[in-house]
Design a protein around this nucleic acid. Structure first.
Length: 477
RNA sequence: CGGGACGUAGCACAGCUUGGUAGUGCGCUUGGUUCGGGACCAAGAGGUCGAGGGUUCGAAUCCCUCCGUUCCGACCA
């Protein structure tokens, strides 16, 4: 194979970080702008986000969430109302201080998240139990002045959805945080082919201002974890700070309970690092902007292009996202190009096929090719896409399961996280032990997994005190 | 924000030590031949050398500052 050096990507084993940025750029997902951490989401990358949006938006609306849009800016005075929240975000805010050449007296913070805007609004529109619950969500971008940035994983600006909900009771609010966590889990299993670990964050790792933070954690191919989304139960802290009250059925004035939740374009980073290989991106069929690419061979021959067009139309009619590449590049070039871009299925149609009434379909995940009868294309594509999704999910799950190892000492923990993966540990619950682990191993507590809380020991390996909770530690992005 | 590396055409790089006309390969454009794993021939186009300042008769090259990318830490979706 005559691979052009300029087009080649670094192999994952050589330099995983370089491989990642190579894929981001060469698969045309993004480009850098001239301001640090502000990336350009190119059409192909943005299209992946649109697929994620489409799925989640439907699920959110399915449980009664409404989309809204809040302002881009937050007056500093308003932002300062909730103490923990301010302390959490103050170091990374971008602030506008000049408007039309005049100094702005109350500087405007470019939203790093919109809790306070929602709270301010809820304070105005909630006054009776009849006004509850409210479940709002917005699709927008936020800005955080990050010190180190990486495409999709950590940007100064990133795209996300932030849901902000408010309820009469604690149970409903926490239930909402858990319900959304479940939806995020479904997104992983059913759409992204990523098995997320769902769990509760430790106090140290939880969101500024939250009582409870839940997260979905994905394990990258290099063994590092990536927090891919969070949901929070806020209790009444924000409501108290912003004076949100409602008169209940018993005529008593009560403070409502809130939750919030979000996933961001970081999910694209997860997809890249969970599924990608040395030939580039590998996209799960349900988010792939192009699910099937049709490559005509000897396309100038009588009938080839016409057939390719016909197949394209047939597949589009079935609702698939199909692209026909009739450019004058060689077939080999096209194969490599669409592999780089992670297109799940490639359909080849050439003179041989035309004669025999077949086509060839190749899978991105393993290069496996099958000859398919023309009349069976729709059926086979449906089967193959489903199969590809399942293979990807299984593979990721096997990888995840084999990288969760129970440890009973800090030394064991270090050995596990150094190799890559989650070290599963019984934990006493104190901050000191968590800090100590970070100091000794650079690993952090990812979460206390909801589905894996059966104790396998009774004491914390760090301090030796009684331990009841299972925590996963890992090095993280 | 601390430490390292890097920044020259769309991409990958050479040129810098020792200052003196902007280079190579790939890609791109046009025409032709090709086409089942990154095809070939021919003719072309394309660069304020990351930005600003300084030294000099003269700066891609030497000096200073800034910006960006990247890696390792600290901090964070």
């Amino acid at each position: 194979m005559n691979i052009n050096k300029n087009d080649a990507i670094t192999s994952r084993d050589t330099d995983f970080a370089k491989w990642y940025t190579d894929v981001c750029r060469k698969a045309e997902l993004m480009d850098y702008s001239s301001v640090k951490g502000f990336i350009i989401y190119r059409p192909y990358g943005y299209a992946i986000w649109e697929q994620i949006q489409k799925y989640l938006d439907g699920r959110f609306k399915g449980i009664g969430v409404s989309n809204v849009y809040m302002p881009l800016v937050i007056p500093e005075s308003l932002f300062n109302k909730e103490k923990e929240h301010v302390e959490g975000f103050a170091p990374e805010t971008l602030i506008a201080t000049i408007g039309g050449k005049a100094k702005i007296d109350d500087p405007l913070i470019i939203r790093p998240t919109s809790e306070v805007l929602f709270c301010e609004h809820y304070a105005k529109i909630v006054s009776s139990h009849r006004d509850l619950p409210k479940m709002y969500n917005q699709w927008c971008s936020v800005v955080r002045w990050e010190k180190t940035t990486r495409p999709f994983l950590r940007g100064s600006e990133f795209l996300w959805q932030e849901g902000h909900t408010i309820f009469a009771t604690e149970g409903e609010a926490r239930g909402n945080a858990l319900e959304i966590l479940k939806i995020y889990g479904d997104l992983g299993n059913d759409v992204l082919a990523i098995p997320f670990v769902k769990g509760l964050k430790t106090d140290k790792e939880k969101f500024a201002g939250a009582l409870e933070t839940y997260s979905i954690e994905a394990l990258m191919h290099d063994g590092k974890a990536l927090q891919s989304g969070t949901t929070h139960y806020f209790g009444t802290g924000f409501a108290e700070a912003f004076g949100i009250k409602f008169q209940d059925k018993d005529n008593i004035l009560r403070t409502p309970h809130q939750a919030s939740w979000g996933v961001s374009t970081r999910l694209i980073g997860s997809i890249i690092m969970v599924h990608g290989d040395d030939n580039g991106l590998v996209l799960p069929p349900l988010v792939a902007p192009i699910q099937i690419v049709i490559i005509p061979i000897q396309q100038n021959r009588e009938g080839i292009l016409a057939k390719a067009e016909e197949i394209k139309n047939r597949l589009e009619k079935e609702g698939y996202r199909v692209s026909l590449d009739a450019s004058d590049r060689s077939p080999g070039w096209k194969y490599a190009e669409y592999e780089m871009k992670g297109v799940p299925l490639r359909l080849e149609i050439g003179p041989r096929d035309l004669e025999s009434g077949n086509v060839v379909i190749a899978r991105r995940i393993d290069g496996h090719k099958e000859v398919v009868k023309d009349s069976d294309i729709e059926k086979e594509v449906q089967r193959l896409l489903k199969e590809v999704h399942n293979v990807m999910l299984d593979k990721a799950r096997v990888f995840l399961d084999s990288h969760i190892l129970a440890v009973k000492s800090v030394a064991e923990l270090k050995s596990v996280v150094d190799k890559g993966g989650y070290a599963k540990m019984m934990w006493c619950g104190c901050r000191e032990c968590e800090d100590k682990i970070k100091e000794l191993t650079t690993a952090t507590a990812r979460c206390m997994p909801l589905d894996d809380q059966i104790p396998f020991d009774d004491k914390c390996p760090v301090c030796g005190k009684k331990a009841e909770r299972v925590v996963y530690f890992a090095k993280a992005y």
